[in-house]
Amino acid sequence: MYQNQYSQQQRMSQPPAVLSTKDNAYLTDALSWELLAVKKAHSFASQCSDQQVKHQLEQLCQLHQQHYHTLLNHLSNNQQDYENQTYPHFHN
């Protein structure tokens, strides 16, 4: 376990840049929320007759796509670290 591996090292002032099991669970939840929001905003925008409402919904679609990428990035970074065995460096 990580605990044994790193317990001899320097005391940490903050958690290291490693995803916890809870982080992973929340990230996957949040990704599915964002995906649903993207689809809903896109679908609604295509059905709108009011151009102002349509534009607002299209912007929301873009925003949630950005959020999706921001969140997904945390899963891909962690994967890389894990494969390279480079984490965690527990100094400041």
Binding site: Q14, P15, P16, A17, V18, L19, S20, K22, D23, Y26, H74
Partner: peptide, 8 residues
């Protein structure tokens, strides 16, 4: 509120 590390 539940996130672990600072970047997240």
């Amino acid at each position: 509120r539940e996130t672990s590390h600072q970047e997240l």
